[in-house]
């Protein structure tokens, strides 16, 4: 569904991604595992063209999205929830959802705020509150809910569990699995193997800007993980 081929990305003069290649199939939950600075965020931002890549190929549903403006990529059905949450703090929860809204897609039942409130019950009671007054966990949920309002076929989640209390991590993991049941593919990044094991089908390990290992999550050994992800 999403195919990335030999992607090279620079920040200024520093090269961050080196010939990065990966693919996500429809209906999968795939993790991009790597330590901080390995290039996870840059990978996502390059896919969304928020940080334009220098060379390579990116296609989504067999169409090239390489160097397409971000908003067009989103309109193709690829949603993105960034790691630092970036909700609109002065907009209410409802308005945040409205900002993420896109026209419905064919063969796809559009998300409504009510459905999303079922998925994220904490948000329902705060729907008229400003985004900035939510707690960290609630903001994370709002970020995901807002992205879902664009009716994506695939959603990219950058470190969705970072900074969340253990209880909330569980809750969010369950929700992400539910998304899969509803036909949304998920591509997420994570540092912690244990957390990735909770929800993912398959994993890529990224190290110094390129993919070093790929396997189903069940067969991914701790050794492989240790080799690249521990400092």
């Amino acid at each position: 569904m999403l195919a990335v081929n030999s992607l090279n990305t620079f920040y200024g003069k520093a090269q961050i991604l080196f010939n990065l290649t990966l693919a996500v199939q429809a209906g999968e939950i795939v993790a991009l595992i790597g330590r901080n600075g390995a290039g996870k965020t840059t990978t996502f931002k390059s896919i969304m063209n928020l940080v334009p890549a220098e060379s390579g190929k990116i296609s989504f549903k067999h169409q090239s999205i390489y160097h397409l403006p971000s908003y067009k990529i989103c309109k193709q059905g690829l949603g993105y929830a960034p790691e630092d949450r970036r909700i609109f703090t002065k907009l209410t929860v409802m308005e945040n959802l409205e900002a993420g809204k896109q026209p419905p897609r064919r063969d796809f039942k559009p998300w409504t705020p009510e459905q999303l409130f079922e998925l994220f019950p904490n948000l329902a009671e705060k729907r008229h509150q400003d985004g900035g007054t939510l707690s960290g966990g609630e903001q994370q949920m709002l970020t995901i809910a807002r992205t879902l309002m664009g009716n994506p076929e695939m959603i990219i989640l950058d470190e969705p569990f970072e900074g969340l209390a253990p209880m909330i991590v569980k809750q969010l993991a369950r929700t992400i699995r539910k998304l899969k049941d509803q036909g949304v593919s998920v591509f997420l990044s994570e540092q912690n193997l244990n957390v990735a094991r909770l929800i993912c089908d398959r994993a890529y390990i990224i190290h110094r800007g390129s993919i070093r290992h790929e396997s189903p999550i069940d067969t991914l050994s701790s050794d492989q993980y240790e080799k690249y992800c521990s400092v």
Binding site: R35, G163, V231
Partner: peptide, 14 residues
């Protein structure tokens, strides 16, 4: 304040 936020596991313990 969250001294190890954003670090890898081994980096954290170090």
């Amino acid at each position: 304040d969250e001294p190890t936020a954003g670090m890898g596991p081994k980096e954290r313990s170090r």
